[in-house]
Computed example of a mutant assay.
Amino acid sequence: MTIDDHWLGAARRVVSPNANARPQGEVSAVVLHGISLPPGEFGGDAIERLFTNSLDPKAHPAFIAIASLRVSAHLLIRRDGECVQFVPFDRRAWHAGKSQWHDGERLREGLNDFTIGIELEGADEVPYREAQYWALAQALHALAGSYPSVSTERITGHARIAPLRKTDPGPAFDWAYLRRCLTEAV
């Protein structure tokens, strides 16, 4: 995979209005998320609709509480490994919310400012698919090649940066398998 003008070449583009300029222009880490809409269901266009402010609150009871949210991610990796990009990597996507991370010896807050948000279509307790790990590994290598501060060691989960609020990508996410994919995808 390659990145051209801050867009992943292999990704389908669905532009989200939920983005703005990064305050310092920094891109230096990745936050992994898990998402399914409706909860526990896969496929369909609800995730894309959420990130483009067109989710119909009447389409499912779970959508009532979230349809008015203004959120996005840079990238979504579907169950079959398809990549969908909503925000160019040089812009701030609204994925992490209130968050903090120990970056070396420094505690940093507001991770949207400097991270890339990658959503994996899934649920905390449902195993992610092999195609997703491989697509993720390839995307992470492309990001590391385009943004010198991003490395395969600067990856964290949403649960780690907002532990009282979030649980994703959840216990079903296999961090060890991702590391193997990263090694083999070189």
Rank of each mutant, 00 (worst) to 15 (best):
M1Q: 13
I3A: 06
D4S: 15
W7Y: 03
W7I: 04
L8G: 00
G9W: 04
A11N: 02
A11K: 00
S16D: 13
N18D: 12
A19V: 11
A21H: 13
R22N: 06
R22I: 10
R22H: 09
P23W: 10
P23I: 14
P23C: 11
P23A: 15
Q24G: 05
G25L: 08
E26Y: 04
E26I: 14
E26T: 13
V31S: 10
L32D: 04
L32A: 08
L32M: 03
H33C: 12
H33G: 13
G34T: 11
G34I: 12
I35M: 03
L37I: 06
P38M: 06
P38H: 06
P38R: 07
P39S: 09
F42M: 10
D45H: 13
D45F: 06
D45P: 07
E48L: 01
R49Q: 15
L50M: 11
L55P: 00
K58Y: 10
K58D: 15
A59E: 11
A59N: 00
P61M: 01
F63G: 11
F63T: 09
A65N: 14
A65K: 15
I66P: 07
I66K: 08
I66V: 15
S68Q: 07
L69Y: 00
R70Y: 06
A73S: 15
L75P: 04
L76R: 12
I77S: 00
I77T: 00
I77V: 08
R78F: 04
D80Q: 10
G81F: 03
E82A: 10
E82M: 09
C83M: 15
F86L: 05
D90C: 04
D90Q: 02
D90W: 05
D90P: 06
D90H: 15
R92W: 03
A93V: 06
A96F: 04
A96T: 14
G97L: 03
G97W: 02
G97I: 02
H102G: 07
D103F: 14
D103G: 12
G104L: 02
E105G: 14
R106E: 07
G110S: 07
L111W: 10
N112A: 05
D113A: 14
D113T: 08
F114M: 05
G117K: 09
E119D: 11
E119S: 08
L120D: 02
L120E: 02
G122E: 09
A123N: 11
A123H: 14
E125G: 00
P127T: 01
R129C: 05
E130W: 08
Y133T: 10
W134N: 09
A135Q: 14
A139R: 06
L143H: 05
S146R: 06
Y147I: 10
P148D: 11
E153A: 15
T156D: 08
T156I: 11
A159N: 08
R160F: 01
R160T: 00
R160W: 03
P163N: 04
L164W: 11
K166W: 08
K166I: 02
K166A: 12
K166C: 12
T167G: 03
T167N: 09
P169W: 11
P169H: 12
P171D: 01
P171F: 00
A172R: 04
F173E: 00
D174R: 06
D174H: 09
W175K: 08
W175E: 03
Y177E: 05
R180Q: 13
L182H: 07
A185W: 02
V186T: 13
